[in-house]
Design a protein around this nucleic acid. Structure first.
Length: 502
RNA sequence: GGCCCCGUCGUCUAGUGGCCUAGGACUCUGGCUUCUCAAGCCAGCUACGCGGGUUCGAAUCCCGUCGGGGCUACCA
């Protein structure tokens, strides 16, 4: 009953315009490196929200920082999203009615708005050099004043202007922040207010005429009719500037997007996860055998929860359950152990064919198999006994290596364990028993060895079978022994056992 | 330094004034499962940062404090 009431209340709280305005969410990374865990979590929430509401998911590339953004990273960002299953309705490759979706291809649009802002008096040319600005910032810091542009060029005398021009200075275009303050409602944090004393006039266009993020992000969100901006918390304090651009654009307040600033994903040491802190590249996880659905499931739980005790959610369930109301405001630490646990769970949910398809590339890459149909048939028959033993796909190589290795050798550190007297007795007996075995299947092998070693020699099972395990698989960690023997086949099994007898 | 955000087990979280002697998950520890390793099952450890208030009653509301983080660029 309580739940019903709550859901009714929540329903009422949904702004009325959401019914009339189709939801449009964007993920707009600046590909200055591989997309990392934090970016992906943002992308996932953006995607989930769009799918949940039946809205559009827009993928935009913010490549205004031409010094740092590269084509490779742009391509990699697309590949990563695709690999994770985060499909976009508008953006690179697929296009859309509000394109282009690369900011580098929208320069004329920004230039137009910049000219308008200048003409309107909302923005002004600033001729201060980097060195001058730097020096003044230092002075401000020394004087314990809030550092930031001091508004020097808001008014320039004719002679100064002439002087600057004669020096060949190229002006930046700076937005004029009026007195007062900006308050906006953040869906996750509530009302947030910034006094303009702490929001200095900011640069929209560089001296070379190229636009900055501050200009492009605001223009694009409006022109692409974005209704919801879900992004990292690091952009929270840039929101007043963005709103200032909306105002200069003449956008009605009711047409501003709704902001929701997602909490950070932190590294183990409690610092913001970044390229310098932790394994953050999604490619790294992919190469280690993490499943995209496991990564998404884990990341979904960082800063969000379905509300009940459920933790294993499919992508489809995520789109059904995801709401911004349930997103946390506090940062979350990234925990590899939990990711591994979820990855293991997801591996166990895979069908045999799916598991085969996904593990094959790892086996090939590790040189365990070359990928022939015969090899794949063996892999397929072996997968059921290791499916519940692996946490990542990459582990399959170590597990199945013994079935394919051409020149078999017991691991060096394991070898001493089967050279002792008792192990040798076990191996000799095993050799004897298995040689005469009529049917080579795990049940028959099990029964025969149990009878001979456990009952016959009175050995503890773990002692007896351990020696055989090492002799045949090369390691004391392996898939179940009798199934392993069956898969290996009579000939190779006996060969290895014989070789282990000194 | 200034502005802003944040603060429940080691970690992710449930919790929106009484259902909380605070629940779940991961990790860790112990046990069971008489082939290892896993998986599974059972048990255990461990949390409302601190101090005031409001209230019959506070993890939940208010104030302060401490701590963490972000921003403070012709980066995003």
């Amino acid at each position: 009953m309580k739940e019903l009431v709550l859901s009714l209340i929540r329903y009422r709280l949904v702004p009325s315009n959401s019914a009339t305005k189709p939801v449009r969410v964007r993920f707009a990374p600046s590909p200055t490196g591989d997309l990392h865990v934090g970016n992906i979590r943002t992308a996932l929430f953006d995607w989930a929200y769009a799918r949940h509401t039946g809205g559009q998911f827009v993928f935009r590339i913010e490549d205004t920082d031409t010094e740092r953004v590269t084509d490779e990273y742009i391509k990699a960002a697309q590949d990563t999203l695709k690999w994770l299953g985060l499909d976009w309705d508008e953006g690179p490759e697929v296009g859309g009615p509000y394109g282009p979706y690369l900011q580098s291809q929208r320069l004329d649009i920004y230039a137009e708005w910049a000219a308008k802002f200048l003409a309107q008096g909302d923005a002004y040319h600033c001729y201060c050099s980097s060195e001058e600005l730097e020096a003044r910032r230092e002075a401000q810091k020394a004087a314990n004043v809030a550092p930031g542009y001091d508004g020097k060029c808001r008014t320039i005398s004719a002679e100064d202007l002439a002087k600057y021009k004669s020096e060949g200075r190229l002006p930046v275009l700076r937005m004029r922040m009026p007195d007062g303050s900006t308050t906006f409602n953040d869906s996750i944090r509530g009302d947030v207010t910034f006094d303009h004393n702490f929001v200095p006039d900011f640069v929209l266009v560089r001296g070379d005429g190229s636009p900055l993020y501050t200009l492009a992000v605001a223009v694009d969100d409006i022109m692409m009719k974005i209704t919801h901006v879900l992004r990292g918390e690091d952009l929270l304090s840039s929101t007043p500037r963005q709103i200032r651009v909306y105002q200069a654009m003449g956008v009605a307040e009711s047409d501003y997007p709704t902001f929701a600033h997602l909490p950070f994903v932190m590294g183990q040491d409690n610092a913001k996860l970044s390229k310098r802190n932790g394994e953050v590249s999604i490619a790294w996880y992919r190469d280690r055998g993490f499943l995209p659905e496991a990564i998404c499931n884990y990341l979904a739980l960082l800063g969000w929860s379905p509300g009940d005790d459920r933790e294993n959610v499919t992508m489809k369930e995520l789109t059904e359950l995801f709401t911004v109301e349930r997103v946390h405001s506090s940062p979350a630490r990234f925990d590899m152990k939990k990711l591994e646990a979820i990855n293991g769970d997801k591996i166990r949910e895979l069908t045999l064919d799916e598991l085969l398809k996904r593990t094959t590339p790892f086996l090939v890459k590790d040189g365990i198999i070359s990928g022939t149909p015969e090899e794949l048939a063996v892999v397929k028959s072996a997968l059921p006994i290791i499916q519940e033993r692996i946490a990542t796909l990459a582990e399959v190589s170590q597990m199945l290596k013994f079935l394919f290795v051409v020149k078999f050798e017991v691991d060096a550190e394991e070898l001493p364990k089967i050279l002792d007297e008792q192990s040798q007795i076990v191996l000799k007996k095993t050799d004897e028993v298995l040689k005469g075995l009529a049917s080579w299947d795990h049940d028959s092998i099990h029964v025969a060895l149990k009878c001979a070693l456990i009952e016959g020699l009175g050995l503890k099972p773990r002692i007896a079978f351990s020696a055989i395990r090492i002799a045949v698989t090369g390691s004391h960690i392996s898939p179940p022994l009798f199934e392993s023997l069956e898969l290996l086949g009579r000939e190779r099994s006996l060969e290895r056992i014989a070789a282990s007898i000194k």
